[in-house]
Design a protein around this nucleic acid. Structure first.
Lengths: 151, 151
DNA sequence: GTTGTTAATGCGAAATATTTGCAATAATTA
DNA sequence: TAATTATTGCAAATATTTCGCATTAACAAC
């Protein structure tokens, strides 16, 4: 129990250090995204967080909380083909790079803690004479659990 | 001149084979995105295409044309931090993978015709026991031209 | 604990972005 | 040239995101 909270507590501490105030909504969003590990839309977050807190949280508040979490690198955003933006917890905010595997069926996010981007960077630098500042790599497919179910 | 049209003609042919009708708006969008090689919003596209055709093209039409082009893999979409969706021509639609370098200053798109994704796929398969169906890799930085200007 | 400061929230409205239904138009096929 | 039907324009409906402002509440200082 205490161990489960360790990582979310680190995020909360990070926010506090940034001068953010720790409100029920902020705590709830961080803990919920941590627990679910599934990409969520703002609407979905509003519903889930309202449920957890027992009152209707305003959508504008969700947007503003996400803005702060994105700024601190705690949350990442992505869009599928449907164009709707989705958010998920980034377990390694200290690494600026985003490497995630997202199951196209259950939308669960899993970290991919390895990076082969130097290959790309080297290519770009040598051939395009450009510099790579950031890279965004998103892998999609079927997670182990959904693979079993589909067979 | 004729050579410049070769690639766009291939896209047009691809659309035709998919049962799409080749309208002035479709041709104009493909050729414009081909020529500019810069990511564009729907609003920007509406303005540019209207200018080129000499009459106001409806925004809904732009959305519907982009939808078809996305479906055929001729166009890719991306979003920067501002949340607005942007579209650009994908020069290698036959390759399902998207590998592009986008200049964060001038928004020019350049193809990166190499792929190191097998490394990621292997990792995901061996460690997460998941299968990678598609991957989306986007590199951002300063292009050669903008590098010179910034110095 | 109490108080002061000010970030965060709720609320409503506005600004943007995207989709949809339907009639008119125009691209293609025969 | 005529028939078929995808595409477009238009207007309205949805959906998404932002903003201003009054209120609330987090938290630092006492």
């Amino acid at each position: 129990m205490m161990q489960n909270n360790t990582e979310t507590d680190q995020f909360i501490q990070l926010l506090r250090n940034q001068g953010c105030r720790i409100t029920p909504v902020v705590i709830s969003v961080v803990k919920y995204l941590y627990k679910t590990s599934v990409v969520k839309t703002t609407q979905q977050l509003r519903e889930e967080i309202s449920m957890r807190l027992g009152y209707e949280v305003n959508l504008a508040t969700i947007y503003r909380v996400l803005e702060r979490l994105l700024q601190c690198g705690i949350v990442c955003s992505m869009h599928k083909n449907d164009g709707v933006m989705r958010y998920y917890l980034c377990h390694n905010p200290q690494h600026a790079e985003h490497h995630h595997f997202i199951c196209s069926k259950c939308l669960k996010v899993q970290e991919v803690p390895v990076c082969f981007s130097e290959n790309f960077s080297r290519y770009v630098e040598e051939n395009l004479h450009a510099t790579v500042d950031t890279h965004f790599i998103q892998l999609e497919g079927l997670c182990a659990s959904c693979r079993r179910k589909t067979v």
